[in-house]
Design a protein around this nucleic acid. Structure first.
Length: 272
DNA sequence: CTATAAACCTGCTGGC
DNA sequence: TGCCAGCAGGTTTATA
């Protein structure tokens, strides 16, 4: 599940390789991905346009073009966006292949087709509703406190997953941040003490930065901008570790559904 | 407002 | 060993 650290890793990989290149051709290898406009239309309008700058907003990757338009990718659950090596065989799940003027190929592959590609005149039409980026250091504990007070009756896990509050946190890093901050996922957002809010803000930054340092979390699908697996799955404390010992106290990690999401936690370190 | 659920999709897991 | 039902999950949309 590509979340902020995974998309950030892809951004870091692709930005130095793509900046300044011109699209030559777009081919569709597999139907079905949710493209707006269609891949056919992308194939008609992208060639000749130059990539000026790459940007990440939450889990979205933006390619700003010299036409003033923005090509935007969201990887959904199983999406990959990577540079295909020269002799590498095509990705069996490739839904769109972007050929650039240095003959490198950018492959968008997505087995479950939850991903999206947009080409828009105004990037805000896609990312305009996002809250501040979860890595934005200008968002401190007091700003987070204000956001939580607006959603004070909602469970804290649901608030963390809400991209209009903070952008970029998904199921993996929500569970990890709540563990790091020793906060139960079912707590009402408004019930957190100022100390807990400050701890949560710190924890969010810690787990996201660690995820980036480890080049993202790969359980099965995620790959970086060169098609390689990440390493952060080895650093996770609770996510996907049901029954295994809590790294802090040794208690067996539990899993339950909170806000409609599989939620992993230490029942001893994160009491309700 | 809040919350839950369904829909999208398909590889994988678990049960029989 | 093999088959199949059901789960997983980001986001949007619909319904309680």
């Amino acid at each position: 599940m590509p979340e902020l650290p995974e998309v950030h890793t892809i951004l870091n990989d692709l930005a130095p390789r793509l900046q300044g290149l011109v699209f030559q051709e777009v081919t569709q290898c597999r139907p079905g991905t949710l493209n707006e406009p269609s891949t056919d239309e992308l194939a008609r309008s992208l060639p000749g346009k130059r990539i000026e700058q790459l940007e990440r907003r939450g889990k979205y990757l933006l390619l700003h073009l010299d036409s003033g338009q923005t090509l935007i990718f969201h990887l959904g659950m199983t999406g990959r966006l990577y540079l295909l090596g020269q002799a590498e065989p095509p990705d069996p799940y490739c839904t769109a292949n972007f050929v650039l003027d240095d003959s490198s190929q950018l492959c968008f592959a997505d087995p479950r087709k939850f991903g999206h590609i947009w080409l828009v005149d105004d990037a805000a039409s896609v990312v305009g509703k996002l809250g501040p980026d979860a890595l934005d250091e200008s968002v401190g504990a007091s700003e987070l406190q204000d956001m939580l007070s607006l959603r004070r009756g909602t469970r804290i896990k649901a608030v963390l997953l809400d991209q209009s509050v903070l952008a970029g946190i998904g199921n993996i890093y929500a569970d990890e941040a709540l563990f790091e901050a020793r906060i139960n996922a079912e707590r009402a957002a408004g019930s957190l003490t100022p100390e807990e809010v400050a701890e949560l803000r710190r924890a969010i930054l810690v787990v996201l930065r660690r995820g980036i340092e480890n080049r993202g979390t790969t359980f099965s699908d995620y790959r970086d901008g060169f098609g390689r697996a990440g390493m952060n799955q080895q650093a996770l404390a609770v996510f996907h570790r049901t029954g295994k010992p809590c790294p802090r106290c040794g208690t067996a990690i539990k899993r339950k559904s909170v806000a409609g999401r599989g939620t992993h936690y230490c029942p001893s370190c994160q009491p309700l």
